[in-house]
Design a protein around this nucleic acid. Structure first.
Lengths: 122, 122
DNA sequence: CTCATTTCTTACGTTTTAGTAAGTACCTAA
DNA sequence: TTAGGTACTTACTAAAACGTAAGAAATGAG
C-alpha cells in the first residue's frame, strides 16, 4: 500500500518529472524488464515462450513485470480467444525506440564490467 | 544484511554478469545517482555544494549513494586535510564515459514523458 | 468424469532500499 | 569556554521489490 504523502514517494515523483533519466530508470528498472524487452525486440512472443526463454524468472514476477510495462505503454497484450488460451506480447513504438538507449547501456555495462574484471587480476 | 544464498541475490548476480544492461542498471539505479553523476559531469564538486544543489536529498542518502558510486569505480573522493574539512568528488574515466548512455536515457525519457502527457489530454 | 494445457492469481514471507532524527569529530575564532 | 563550520555516522523505521508455493478458469480429448 502506497502512502501518497511519504517523502519517499514525493522524491520519486519529483525526480521522475524533472529528470528524463530518472523517468527512464523508473520504467526499465525492474529486475526482468530489460530481458523481456530484448526478447520482444524482434517481434511478438507468446507468454509461454517468454517464460521458457528467461531463465530464473517465476510466473508471478514475469506477469507482474509484463503488466507494469503494459501500463507504462512499452508493450501491448494480444489475446487470441481460443482454447487452450494464447496470449502474445508485442512492443509498442515507444518500446521499440528504446533500442538505442538499451544498446548504449549494454555497451557501457559490458565495457565497465570487462575492465573491472581485468583490474581484479592485476 | 545481505543473504548470499537467497534466490533474490542469485538472480541479481546472474543478470548482472550476463547482461550489460542489467549491470549498468545496478550501478546507476539508486534514486539519487543519476543526479549526482550529472552534477559531476563538469568537474570536481564539494560535498556541501552537492548537498545544496540536489533538492530533497538527505545527508544519509547522499553519503550512501556517493560511497556506492565510489565502490563501483564511478567517482573518487578527494580529501583535503584542512580545517574545516574539505572533500571533493570527481568522476573517474568510467564515470565520464557514461555521458552518451545518460544522454540516450534522458532523451528517451523526455520523449516518452512528453508523449504520455499529450495523450492524457486527448 | 478426469486429465492436460495455457495463462495467470492469491496468499504469504523475505530482502533491499529509502527515509527521519539525532549525534560525532575536528579545529578555529571570539 | 563556547559557538560554528564541514563532512559525515548511528540507530531506528517505513515502504517497496522480489520470491515461493499453491490454486484456478476454461474447454476439448480420452
Amino acid at each position: 500500500m502506497r502512502k501518497e504523502s511519504s517523502t519517499n514517494n514525493i522524491n520519486e515523483k519529483r525526480l521522475r518529472e524533472m529528470c528524463g533519466t530518472s523517468y527512464a530508470l523508473s520504467i526499465i528498472g525492474g529486475r526482468w524488464k530489460p530481458t523481456i524487452i530484448c526478447r520482444l525486440m524482434d517481434g511478438k512472443v507468446r507468454y509461454s515462450e517468454l517464460r521458457d526463454s528467461i531463465a530464473g524468472v517465476s510466473e508471478r514476477m514475469l506477469v507482474q513485470q509484463l503488466r507494469e510495462l503494459e501500463k507504462d505503454g512499452i508493450l501491448i497484450r494480444i489475446v487470441h480467444p481460443q482454447v487452450p488460451p494464447k496470449v502474445e506480447y508485442e512492443l509498442t513504438e515507444d518500446g521499440l525506440c528504446m533500442q538505442p538507449m538499451l544498446t548504449k547501456m549494454s555497451e557501457w555495462g559490458n565495457n565497465h564490467k570487462a575492465k573491472y574484471q581485468k583490474e581484479e587480476l592485476v
